[in-house]
């Protein structure tokens, strides 16, 4: 996990890749869910992916987000395989569709975290 967060601090998305079977992951786990391997190395993501789902949030879940609604939360399937939650930015919500190709850049989120977001 720390590697992922360290990567975020440098505007890099570092995916843990199973040293045994080569599967790329995102959510941190002690075991590779595909082969059971326990050793991982980092691979920098290309930043390309496609939208697998999205939701336009109209109500802020906390005061941090009050000034940001509406915003579009998306799920993006990276070309390396893993899926990640993100924001879909720089496009009107009604132009977003499942299957749309998107690319990553880093942005500061309302709570102060620096995270990958995606745009067409």
């Amino acid at each position: 996990m720390s590697t992922l967060l360290e990567g975020y601090a440098q505007d890099r998305l570092l995916l843990p890749v199973c040293a045994s079977c080569g599967a790329a992951h995102l959510y941190p786990r002690p075991r590779c869910p595909r082969c059971g391997g326990t050793r991982f190395h980092d691979q920098e993501a290309s930043g390309r992916g496609e939208v697998t789902s999205f939701s336009v949030v109209r109500r802020a879940p906390s005061p941090d987000f009050t000034g940001s609604v509406p915003y579009t939360i998306g799920l993006v399937r990276l070309e390396e395989g893993p899926q990640m939650m993100t924001w879909i930015v720089d496009t009107p919500p009604d132009a977003i569709s499942v299957g749309m190709k998107v690319t990553m850049h880093f942005a500061d989120l309302p709570g102060g975290e620096r995270r990958p977001v995606f745009a067409p």
Binding site: Y27, S55, I73, M84, V98, L109
Partner: peptide, 19 residues
């Protein structure tokens, strides 16, 4: 990986619904 983007619980289900 998710909370910083500000999903409500309904958003998490909405992602399932939209798909």
């Amino acid at each position: 990986l998710e909370a910083p983007y500000g999903p409500m619980v309904p958003t998490l289900y909405a992602l399932f619904a939209q798909r």
